[in-house]
Amino acid sequence: MLLTDFVVSDAILPDLDADTKDAAIRGMVESLSGAGRIPAADSEGIITSILKREELGSTGIGNGVAVPHTKHPAVDQLTATVALSNRGVDFASLDGEAVHILFLLISPPDLPGDHLRGLESISRHLRNPNFCNFLRQAQSCEEVVELLQEADNNQLG
């Protein structure tokens, strides 16, 4: 599965203005709502659901990366956005480090396979140090989209 298949370009936040996990998740969900990819009426429910998932264990999986996610009937296909934080977000990550790269993923409840393939795609690319380093240096939506395309095309080494 390609990143550009499910990351909503118009909802990318290259300079996330948030210090806390709650604010980061809220900002990303509202960005997806603003881009028209989730109904505004479902935003609060989705935020609550993602925060509830975080209570089971942080999705800050180390190396400055977090993948907050949920399954929710408001979407009928895998829907994601990317946010970058220069100063870092306290995500209670497994390694205790602040998070600088966030992929927020919302999956339809009846498509668990797509959810796994989305996570697979995100994690496979995040294992590539070039992808993470370039992503952290990106300054605009366009630069992030370009990197996602390069990652999809395996152009990042």
Partner: peptide, 12 residues
């Protein structure tokens, strides 16, 4: 390694 495990994409 979490990132490694997630790349397995192991369905039911």
């Amino acid at each position: 390694t979490m990132l490694d495990l997630l790349t397995l994409s192991a369905e039911n």
